[in-house]
Each structure stands twice: as C-alpha cells, then as structure tokens.
Design a protein around this nucleic acid. Structure first.
Lengths: 227, 227
DNA sequence: CGTCTTCTTGATCGCATTCAACGTGTGTGG
DNA sequence: CCACACACGTTGAATGCGATCAAGAAGACG
C-alpha cells in the first residue's frame, strides 16, 4: 500500500503510534466517562481539552441558523477529537454511545508542539488526514446518489469495526442522514433498496451483515443505478 | 472580530504573516511562471515543491474514475498550495490564469518544521484553516440550493478581490460548477436568475458588479427561494 | 401494558440534471 | 481586415432523484 503520509520520509501514523507519541507527553491525563447524548464541548467556545476516545462512539457536528445539522464525522476508539477546534468555528462533540475518553489539556499540547517535533508532526499529520477525509466526503456527497452513499457508509463501518458480520450501527437514521446530506426518509429507503439486492441483511435496525462485500463495494462505486 | 486561531494565545496569521515566516526560511526560493492551463503538479505523485502564489489564480482539483472533477478550491496571491498534499491523495493544481509562483522545497520545509516552531505552527494553522473551509464548503453544498451557492460564490470573489465593481470571474462556468457541485447549465441559470433580481449586473460573462451587497448576502443565506 | 421514540413506507412535488439547440466571443490564418 | 472555426456561454423541454408531507409499524422503557 502506498504511503499516505504528508512526506515520503514520514511513515503513516497508525492510531497506536499517535497514542504513543501523545501518551509519552501526557501519561497521567484524566479519564472521563460519558453517557449517550452527553457533550464533550459545544460550538462557540474554544475547549480547554481535547480528547482521545478510549471506548464508544462520538459524533462531531455543527448547526446552521435554521437548526439543520451537519455531522462532519463519527469517531471511535483511538481517535482524537477537539484538536482541530478553532475559535468560533468549534464544532460540537456528542456521545453517540456511552464512552470513555482521555482528557488532554489543549494549551499544554500546543505548547509542547512548539518544542517537540514528535507532537507537532502528530498534529500536522492528523490535520492533513482530516482535511483529506473532509474533501473525500464532499466528493461523495456531491457525486454519488443516496444508495451509493449508504453502501459506502456501511462498508466503512464494517472496515472500522474489522468485521463483516453483526456490524453495529451505533447512530440513529437521523445521524446518518445528517452525515450523508440526506433526509431520514431517504436513508431508510436507500437501506431498504440495498437489502432488497441481497448483498446485506439487517437482523435489526442497528445491526447488519455483509453477504457480498464485492457487490456492496460495486454499489458504493461507479454504478449510477442499483437495481 | 473573534480570533479564529487554533489556540487563544495564537493570533490569527494573515497572509502577510505567513509569507514572512516562510520567507525568512526560504528567501531565495525559485520563482516560476505558468501559463493558463499549465499544471504545477498532478494527482498521484507527491510533489517535490509546494508553492506560494505571487500573482494569478490556480485551481485545486481531484478527478473521479468516471472523469468527474471536484475543484476543492481556487487560490490567488498570498496563498500556499501543495502543502497539504499526501501521497496518493495529492490533488492537481492547474493555472486558471497566467501565474507567477514561488517554489518552496517540500522536504526542506517539513524538515525545518521539526526544528522551528514558527514553521510547524504555520503548517498547523494553515491545515486547520483549510479543514475548516473544506467543512464549511460541504455544508453549503449540502444545504443550499443553486442560487444560494452562486450568490455566496460571487460574494466571496468580491471579498477576495476587495471590491464590488468590475469583479473578475477568472474561471469558466464549468470550473464554477465543479467547485459548487452543479452542472454548467445550472450555474448559468442561477447566474441569470441573480441578474434578474437586479442585485448584480454582468457587463461580460467574466465580470460582474454588485449593486446591492446586502440583498446578495440575503440571497446567499437562509432564503429558500430567490424570486 | 401503554407511551414515546425511532424506523419504515407511500404519494406528491420541486429542483437540478440531462439532452438538445442556439448565441457569443475569441483567436487564427488567409 | 475579414472569414471561419472552435471553445465557451445561454436557454428550453423533459426526466428523475431526493425532499416533503403524511401515516403507520416496530422497538425501547418505565
């Protein structure tokens, strides 16, 4: 696999590497427990801490004046959130499931980044990866129809959870819609259509099993129609 | 105006500040001239240089398998491009108009970032700003209709060029469409509708004058319809 | 067991796309 | 300088996808 690093000499940081680099600096960081629906911080104010997700899933979102939400991403164990918050553009981080997170003081992290290359490179790599991901998401939303977006979303969930059977959908249909730029009804319909093709089964609304991964990838890809 | 910096203690870097920080390190960087349509580098390979735009406008884009393009952004003088390139996900940078750019060796830049806080902070701030911008763009594309997107685009062009009269549209309708997630026809129709409302005049296809800035901002904003 | 939330399906509507044709402008060579 | 060609821009008509409005089904929870 080709390197995704920002420089050829910089190897791609795995979540473990990141944890390591920051852990060395902040070994005694506070651990905090979150209940489903609780917020780590919300838009507007620059947070005092950023967080590493130890377990559970959080969603990161912004709200428009008219109340519409955009969920930029979901994060689970090994991911860092709140690092890229900037002043008034700080998004909200909310627990999708019960979570355990490690609190890292932002000010100290950025102070250390000024003296420790390991930390600053960690930040640069993290931001570059997020930027790339944000742009790929825009591309998907612009260029793919509802079925393709949902097929891609299921594939990614399965990949993140490292399995194809009994994959969990921890977030609501509304959350999925807010993430994919679709309404809740369209999410339902797209899921139903995918089920109908037989490549995926859903024993319950919040679990699924991929029967034909290749066909699902195909459905997420260049196919204009999914019938 | 509230700070947009990533930390309260970090003041927002203006383009001038950035130029300054990097200039100090790379005072003798090579200058290169580009003709309209020429590429600085293209997707796939990690570029050896990144560039500061001295004059002219470039577009940054990726291409999907099926040939569709997504223009992530347009950059003009004072902006840096190619900094956030990462391995296989490197986008293409192409001159929209004739350009003059300053070449900065990437490897040296990132090496310096490991020893000089000024450089690493420059990179972190640049990436954080791009990330924010990318997400706001996604939000606009998801939640706003064609007329709103175009109104917003015109406003931004005017703002960047620092005037409301004889604002240049250096890019083609196709480029605008690829940037806003619309077809070329829809771009035309949206522009026509905006002209019809009388808030903007277009002496030629590539120039416009804003007659009523507030009304244009309104049209870009929460209005669902523009009649 | 009943209530509330979440999920699903149906019918209709509107916006942007698609396909098609026609204008407009720009640059090149005769 | 004009004629022509070609790229770019504009407008029209028909189609289709996802949004909206509405109602009903399935879980979750006390």
């Amino acid at each position: 696999m080709a390197s995704r690093a920002i420089l050829p000499s910089t190897k791609e940081l795995s979540d473990a590497d990141r944890q390591c680099a920051v852990n060395k600096r902040f070994p005694a960081a506070l651990v905090r427990r979150l209940h489903h629906g609780e917020m780590l911080f919300s838009e507007g104010a620059l947070p005092r801490y950023c967080y590493e997700i130890i377990s559970g899933v959080v969603k990161e979102y912004r709200t428009l004046e008219d109340g519409q939400r955009e969920i930029t991403d979901f994060y689970s164990d090994g991911s860092f959130v709140g690092v890229d918050a900037r002043g008034e553009y700080t998004p909200t981080i909310e627990a999708v499931t019960d979570c355990v997170v490690r609190c890292i003081p932002r000010e100290a992290l950025f102070r250390d980044a000024q003296t420790t290359a390991e930390i600053s490179m960690f930040l640069i790599d993290l931001l570059a990866e997020r930027l790339d991901r944000a742009r790929q998401r825009t591309m998907k939303i612009c260029r793919k129809n509802a079925n393709q977006r949902l097929a891609g979303f299921l594939l990614e969930l399965a990949k993140r959870q490292g399995r194809t059977s009994d994959v969990r959908l921890p977030m609501s249909r509304q959350d999925i819609g807010d993430h994919m730029g679709l309404t809740i009804e369209t999410v339902c319909r797209a899921l139903t259509e995918i089920k109908k093709t037989g490549v995926v089964t859903m024993p319950s609304a919040r679990t699924f099993t991929i029967l034909d991964e290749q066909a699902l990838a195909q459905a997420a890809g260049d196919e204009r129609k999914l019938h």
